[in-house]
Write a protein that binds this DNA or RNA. Structure first.
Lengths: 76, 76
DNA sequence: ACTTTTTTTATCATTTATGATAACCATAAC
DNA sequence: GTTATGGTTATCATAAATGATAAAAAAAGT
């Protein structure tokens, strides 16, 4: 597994964690972000290398900053 | 201009600013990141919606965090 | 068990980020 | 002028992100 894969998995886990902290369903957040629920699932599973705009929409709909979302250091 | 375009322009300006702060040439940073200089130019001009991995490589080679790079609020 | 909700997985189409190459523009030296 | 150096712009190909749909699996509730 290369560093790109590791990054994808890290961001996926982080999005999932932040989403669950707010107790919102994956499909509901996906809908608010105008992202297909299947694609959102892939993203959380680390199966994609999201673009900045995708991350921005997620951050906005979670009420957090982009910085919060990509704060991956020292995170499980 | 929609919010996606604004975001792209904002990240481009931010990358350019951070790069110039370190006095490194665009083409040199591009080379270190394994990004084509023409593509890097496009990115700084706001002509692309970069992926997380692209931003990560730029951050790494600038010696800063992803959070630093996407810290776009209240920035020109 | 059954039903409902939520998530995952697979597949195909479309859009777009990036790679790659080339040519061009600007500036500053000399 | 010419020569570098740094940046831009255009174009085409390729890889991959995302859209879109469907089906299956898993989890939760009753």
């Amino acid at each position: 597994m290369d560093d790109k894969d590791q990054l994808q998995i890290a961001i996926g886990k982080r999005v999932k964690m932040l989403r669950e902290e707010q107790g919102i369903a994956q499909q509901d957040l996906a809908a608010k972000c105008n992202i297909e629920k299947s694609n959102f699932s892939r993203l959380e599973a680390g199966g994609t290398n999201p673009t900045l705009y995708t991350l921005k929409r997620i951050a906005d709909n979670l009420g957090i900053t982009l910085c919060d979302i990509v704060n991956l250091e020292d995170k499980k």
